[in-house]
Simulated assay, not measured.
Amino acid sequence: MALSDADVQKRIKHMMAFIEQEAIEKAEQIDAKAEEEFNIEKGRLVQTQRLKIIEYYEKKEKQIEQQKKIQMSTMKSQARLKLLQVQNDLVSELLNEAKLRLIRIVADPGVYQEMLYKLVLQGLFRLLEPEVIIRCRQQDYILVEGVVRQAIPQYNTVSKKHVNVHLDVEMHLSMNSMGGVEVYSCDQKIKVSNTLESRLDLLAHQKMAEIRRTLFGANPNRKFLI
């Protein structure tokens, strides 16, 4: 049976409504799929960037921490050097004070003569040579000549040896010397330096650890006392 125009129009409208509905549903599915993929990609990008940011700031934090350690180490080294400089200055002041006291001792003829006697006698015992040469400051010549006369009998008695002592009248100790004597073997190949400055330097070297411990206390970083 043939359809009327009204029926044809009705079917066409129904088919068009069905197609339109199907298109709408398809579009909604595409939109939903696109939204889902967008959210997934957005989450991935956000996570990637977040990890990059975290990594960047962790790297920066490590760099800052390293810089802080370097700066702290530098500051400690500078402070330690400054402390050592201050300590060295104090030790130098102490040694200068000792030199001033020696100068005052030299200014006392009685005390200085006794010191010269001991320095000459020690030089003779250290050399144990049959002939020696003694050199002193030009202004000490008479004092040294006197103590030599005193020292020779003492040396002969203790060492059981005889010694001839010659005072050097041509060569003298430096004008800057504080005093004391230099004792030489006859060929001048062996020398015993018993000047006041050499004895002070030797004593300072031997006692430096004790001096520093007395002035500044024990060094916590030092493992051995000798």
Rank of each mutant, 00 (worst) to 15 (best):
M16N: 10
A17K: 10
A17Q: 11
A17W: 01
A17E: 12
I19N: 04
I19K: 14
I19M: 04
I19H: 09
E20K: 09
E20F: 07
Q21T: 14
E22R: 13
E22I: 02
A23K: 13
I24R: 07
E25C: 11
K26P: 03
K26A: 15
E28L: 09
E28V: 09
E28T: 11
Q29A: 11
Q29P: 07
Q29M: 12
Q29I: 09
A32I: 06
K33I: 05
K33L: 09
E35K: 10
E36Q: 12
E36S: 15
E36H: 09
E36C: 04
E37N: 08
F38Y: 05
N39F: 01
I40L: 04
I40D: 10
K42D: 05
G43V: 01
R44H: 07
V46R: 15
Q47I: 02
Q47P: 00
T48A: 13
Q49H: 05
Q49A: 12
Q49F: 02
R50A: 15
L51R: 13
L51H: 14
K52V: 07
I53V: 11
I54T: 05
I54V: 10
I54N: 07
E55M: 02
E55A: 11
E55D: 11
Y56L: 08
Y57V: 11
Y57C: 03
E58F: 04
E58G: 07
K59T: 12
E61W: 02
K62R: 14
K62E: 15
Q63L: 14
I64N: 05
I64L: 09
E65C: 01
Q66C: 08
Q66I: 06
Q66A: 13
Q67Y: 09
Q67M: 10
K68M: 10
K68W: 07
K68P: 06
K69I: 03
I70L: 15
I70D: 12
Q71R: 01
Q71T: 06
M72F: 01
S73P: 00
T74K: 10
M75L: 09
S77N: 11
Q78C: 01
A79S: 15
L81C: 04
L83G: 03
L83V: 02
Q85G: 15
V86H: 05
V86D: 07
N88C: 06
D89K: 02
L90V: 05
V91Q: 04
S92F: 14
S92P: 01
